[in-house]
Design a protein around this nucleic acid. Structure first.
Lengths: 160, 160
DNA sequence: TATTGTTATACTCTATAACTATA
DNA sequence: TATAGTTATAGAGTATAACAATA
C-alpha cells in the first residue's frame, strides 16, 4: 500500500489551500495568534534593546527585588543555565545588579537599578501600546474573558 | 546612577515570586497557555512518531491533495528550505508521496498515501483527545468565543 | 549530600543566501 | 528573468550533564 496515493491523482492544480482540518483546534489558533503577537512585540521592544525574554526577566526583577537567579529561572520557566546570558546582558546594560546575598554566599540577589526601573516603565508603555493594537477588535469584557480562559487552559494543560 | 539599586536593599529573602506585572498582558497569558498546550500535544503525538509541525503538514496535504511544497510552506508559515526535511521525513515514513507535476517539471505534487491518510485519522483522534483535556474547563460556547477572539487577535497583530 | 551559579554541548526551530533545473 | 526545490549556514531558544563553591 505504501507509495500509492489515497485518492486518484488530481489532474488539476491546487489553487488556494485551506487549513480547516487544523483551524478546528483551539491549539492551532492559539499558536497562529501567539506567533503574530510575538512578532509585533519584538518590534515594540526593539527600540529598548530588549527581547521578550529579557523584558520578562526585568519585569520579574522589578516586581520581586532581591530574588535569586534560581527563582527567576523558575518564574520564567527556563533552565538556570539558560538564564546566565540573559542576566549577564541586563547587568552589562546597567539595568540590574547582582548583589551578594548576606546569608548565602552561593547566591546573588537580583535588583533593578534606577535606570533599569525607568527603562522598564518606558518599555511597559510600549508593550501596552502593542497590546492595544493586537487586541483592538476585542472589547474590555472580551479581553477579561479571553485572559481568564487562557489561564484555565494553562492550568488544565499542565495537569494533563 | 548605574549600579545603584532602585530601592533600599531588602534584607529579607524573597519567598514566593509573583508575576502580576506580566499577567496583566494577554500576550503573556497566551504564551504560557500555548507552551503548556504544546507540551501536551507533543506527548499526544509521540506514539505516532509525529511532531506538531509534521502533523500540521500532513493535515494540509490530506486536505489539499496535489499541492506544491511552496504552497505547503506558505500554509505552514515556514520557509521552503525548512520544509525539505519535514517532507523528507513524511515521505520516508510512507505517509506521503512526491509525484511529478504534469505541467511543471520543477515542482512536486504532494499527496498522502492510504497509510498516511489512515495515520492522520488516528493521530487526529489523539489530538482531539488532547484538546479535550486542555479545554476541559471551558464550555462549548466559551471554546467558540475563544477561538473567534484568537482569530481576531491574529488578524489584528498581522496588520499591526 | 544538596543547592547556586556556571560552562559546555546538543538539538530544535527559524531565517537567509546561493545553487540547479526548469519556466 | 523568475520560480521550485534544495543545500549550507547561522542565529535564536531550549534541555542535559558536569563542575566549583558553598550550604
Amino acid at each position: 500500500m505504501v507509495g500509492r496515493a489515497a485518492k486518484p491523482q488530481a489532474a488539476a492544480e491546487v489553487n488556494t489551500i485551506t487549513d480547516a482540518n487544523l483551524r478546528r483546534f483551539a491549539g492551532y489558533n492559539m499558536k497562529r495568534a501567539f506567533i503574530a503577537v510575538q512578532a509585533d512585540l519584538g518590534r515594540a521592544l526593539e527600540p529598548f534593546d530588549l527581547r521578550m525574554i529579557t523584558y520578562s526577566a526585568l519585569a520579574l526583577i522589578v516586581e520581586n527585588p532581591g530574588l535569586r537567579q534560581a527563582q527567576l529561572a523558575e518564574g520564567l520557566s527556563i533552565e538556570r543555565s539558560n538564564l546566565v546570558a540573559i542576566v549577564d546582558g541586563l547587568e552589562k546594560s546597567g539595568w540590574i545588579v547582582r548583589n551578594p546575598m548576606p546569608n548565602d554566599r552561593r547566591a546573588y540577589a537580583l535588583t533593578a537599578t534606577e535606570a533599569g526601573a525607568a527603562l522598564f516603565e518606558r518599555a511597559t508603555a510600549a508593550v501596552t501600546e502593542h497590546e492595544e493594537k493586537c487586541l483592538r477588535d476585542l472589547g474590555a469584557e472580551d479581553r477579561k474573558q479571553m485572559t481568564q480562559m487562557l489561564k484555565l487552559v494553562e492550568r488544565a494543560s499542565h495537569s494533563a
